Amino acid sequence: MPHLCVRFHAELQEFFPPQRRGRPVEMAFRGPQTAKHLLEAAGVPHVEIGAVRLGDAAFPLNAVPPAGACLEVFPRTPRERWPADLPSPRFALDGHLGRLASYLRLLGFDTAYRNEVDDADLVAQAVAERRVVLTRDQDLLKRKALTYGYWVRATDPHAQAAEVLERFAIASLARPFTRCPRCNGLLAPVPKAEVLAQLEPLTRRYYDEFYRCQTCSQVYWRGSHYERIAALVRRWLADEPLT
């Protein structure tokens, strides 16, 4: 039976166990199948692929490679991972990444998240709102309708936030403390008198600067917890100044 040879480059190797990395993938060629189908059968979602080459020429994902061919497959660059006309990415996260969703909102990124959402609805929202899907589910990223998505490698939420910043090269676009971690709404300054009834006695006494979510009306202030969160943000942003 004819075979197809595929070489996955750079971080695409992370889709394979360590013992299989750095080696070409040999696949049985069972008739006309598109490059997308073959590469996803090997384990790499199409949304992670930036370029495919056959010899010196680019090879489309929707084309059928010839038997015996050897494809070279490269990852997307950071800027190719979201729509080119967006100034910064907008994310949609699956139900298993709740803490990451809160952290991305804390950093100021527009992040859609519901803890109970099925894959079809998540993909539909991402396509309609032009969002990048973040997930730990590789099969979700293989859905044909999806254009932009990323498989989060880390399992710890703190490490996941750092990974997303690095893989999308967006640390300089962060606007910390401008979004509500609970609902993703934008925060705006609010006079103390307008939120006085929502405050505990000690908060009323010691704090004067407040912010309110324009969507859910949650009130925020720079209390004792602020320095701990600000230190975490500084680590994520490699000590870039906070806004």
Rank of each mutant, 00 (worst) to 15 (best):
L106A: 07
L107T: 15
L107R: 05
F109I: 15
F109G: 05
D110Y: 04
T111N: 11
A112W: 10
Y113I: 04
Y113Q: 06
R114Y: 12
R114H: 11
N115S: 15
N115F: 13
E116K: 12
V117F: 03
V117T: 15
D118Q: 09
D119I: 10
D119E: 13
A120P: 14
A120E: 13
A120S: 15
L122H: 07
L122D: 04
V123L: 02
V123G: 02
A124E: 12
A124H: 14
A126H: 03
A126D: 03
A128P: 11
R130H: 13
R131V: 01
R131M: 02
D137P: 10
D137S: 08
D137E: 14
Q138P: 14
L141D: 02
K142D: 01
A145T: 09
A145K: 08
A145Q: 11
A145G: 14
Y148Q: 00
Y148E: 00
Y150C: 05
T155N: 12
T155F: 03
T155M: 15
H158M: 07
H158K: 12
H158N: 09
H158Q: 15
A159D: 13
A159Y: 02
A161P: 13
A162Y: 08
A162K: 14
A162L: 10
A162R: 12
A162W: 09
E163L: 03
V164F: 03
E166W: 15
E166M: 02
E166G: 11
R167F: 03
F168A: 01
A169H: 07
A169T: 04
A169L: 04
I170R: 00
I170G: 10
A171V: 12
A171G: 14
L173K: 05
L173M: 07
A174S: 12
A174W: 01
R175K: 10
P176D: 03
P176N: 02
F177T: 11
T178A: 11
R179E: 09
C180R: 05
P181G: 01
